[in-house]
Nucleic acid binder design. Structure first.
Length: 471
DNA sequence: TTTTGAGTTGTTCGA
DNA sequence: GTCGAACAACTCAAA
């Protein structure tokens, strides 16, 4: 009787369409599922991410239990734990799904050779992305730097892999677990104000996908931009922890198109969002410093302003621009912010306050349920204009116009900035323009119940234009 | 090698 | 109120 294969879970907390799990189950030996909390390697998780992860691990464990297995969670040095565990259980191999965080890449290949040296079968599998970053290249054999041709090339390559169903049962390693020197992880599920907002775990992810296709995807192209509408997939946090595979999403959506349950134009728009996710990971893969450094070096000379108080007001949703404040408060309350509002809020920090995008990125990293090293960073760089996109210098969001255009009845804004609820919609995005008697009737006292705008738009726009033209 | 067309998400101003 | 033009210059990707 040979020992188990250790199935090392990381950002692939699902049983559906899991190549490493399928391979482990097919190996003919038993499977030992583990998760290791290792703070030493990657960027420390934010509070919100820790919450989601703990929920997700719990859900994964439940799924495993239903199939006769169990998840073992450890904390400490990954290599040491895997080696000691392998030795103690006489494991024959370690399987895992690839991650693309630059911090992991070197460590993982090092780990792979170390495991092989002690006679273990060490294998990594795909599953987090539709395309491996090194597979997609332009005609010169280089990675793409512009999204459209990148995605066009992806589509031309086509997707041949089919998602694989979760195994019905898992032949779990039943031997004694050794006394281990390392502490158990403290990633136990805990209650926060976020619990009511999300259905975490693989089951929640699959349910949301079905709901999205059934009731949201039709009309997605237009509704996705309206924060007052439930018009986006909200699959991002599930994708972040691999509770659902992009391949599963891809095929489920394509099947719905072929069955004429959803219009192709809406589906294409949504699939392109998956494409952006692929593109961000590709950028991170080829630019390991993406999280810290401007992709476009000329931005190193940008005259960022150190403004602690301004940053604090932005974080707290007290900028005096209702659409920005609504977004920042949504983030705090729900761990999420609508995509359109993310752009507006990020643009405001960067272009109106001229605060370094890295500060905003760090806050989002701490607060977002879907914060991942690729999408979060690439998107912040995109808004800042220093990312992989020749942003026209004049693309500066006007927070008043954006509010009126995308939240025309101020429904979204009034949900998160209720102190302005009684203002006529006309003034909902520029309360300082309301006549005094209107303010008084609405119970708004600018400076007391709601702040006046911290910077005047026209001034901020000119200042930002000047700063950008100096690069 | 050179050339050509295009690049997620906008705003303002003047007719 | 609506509509079209103007708003830099540069880099990327492919022909």
């Amino acid at each position: 009787m040979s020992g188990p294969i250790i199935l090392w879970f990381r950002q692939d907390l699902r049983l559906d369409d899991h190549s490493a799990l399928i391979a482990a189950c097919a190996s003919g030996t038993t499977v030992l599922p583990v998760f290791i909390e290792d703070d030493a390697v990657a960027r420390p998780l934010g509070q919100t991410s820790k919450w989601w992860l703990s929920q997700s691990l719990n859900a994964l464990n439940q799924g495993l239990r239903e199939r006769g297995a169990q998840l073992h969670v450890f904390k400490g040095d990954t290599a040491q734990i895997l080696k000691e565990l392998a030795q103690a259980t006489e494991a024959v191999g370690v399987y895992w799904s690839r991650c693309y965080d630059p911090e992991y890449i070197g460590r993982d290949s090092q780990l792979k050779s170390e495991l092989k040296e002690i006679g273990l079968e060490a294998q990594s599998f795909t599953g987090h992305l539709l395309f491996e970053p090194w597979q997609v290249e332009n005609k010169s054999g280089q990675p793409f730097k512009v999204f459209s041709p990148f995605w066009k090339a992806c589509r031309a390559m086509g997707i041949t892999r089919q998602p694989q169903a979760a195994p019905k049962a898992i032949n779990c390693y039943q031997g004694a677990m050794p006394e281990l020197a390392w502490a158990k992880s403290d990633l136990l599920p805990f209650e926060t104000h976020l619990n009511g907002h999300w259905q975490t775990g693989e089951t929640g992810a699959l349910k949301r996908l079905e709901h999205f296709i059934e009731t949201i995807l039709t009309g997605y192209k237009d509704a996705r931009d309206m924060p007052c509408v439930d018009g986006t997939s909200r699959l991002s946090p599930h994708l972040r922890w691999g509770e659902i595979s992009p391949l599963r999403i891809w095929h489920t959506v394509q099947d719905a198109v072929h069955a004429e349950r959803v219009p192709a134009k809406d589906a294409e728009k949504f699939l392109a969002e998956l494409g952006w996710r692929e593109f961000s990971f590709q950028l991170l893969y080829f630019n390991p410093n993406l999280q810290k450094e401007n992709l476009q070096q000329r931005f190193n000379a940008f005259p960022w302003v150190e403004d602690t108080e301004g940053f604090e007001r932005w974080r707290n949703g007290q900028t005096g621009y209702p659409i920005v404040d609504a977004g920042m408060r949504e983030l705090r309350e729900t761990g999420y912010m609508h995509n359109r509002v993310r752009m507006i809020a990020a643009s405001f920090l960067i272009k109106h306050l001229m605060i370094d995008w890295r500060h905003g990125e760090a806050w989002f990293w701490d607060q977002l349920v879907d914060a991942d090293p690729a999408n979060n960073t690439a998107s912040w760089q995109w808004v800042a204009g220093c990312g992989a996109d020749a942003a026209p210098y004049f693309r500066i969001f006007n927070p008043i116009i954006q509010g009126r255009k995308f939240d025309p009845e101020a429904l979204y804004t009034s949900r998160f900035v209720p102190e302005l609820n009684n203002l006529p919609v006309k003034y909902a995005f520029s309360p300082w323009e309301a006549p005094l008697d209107v303010l008084k009737t609405a119970g708004v006292d600018l400076g007391l119940s709601y702040p006046p705008p911290m910077v005047e738009h026209g001034f901020a726009r000119e200042r930002a234009l000047a700063a950008f033209s100096g690069l």
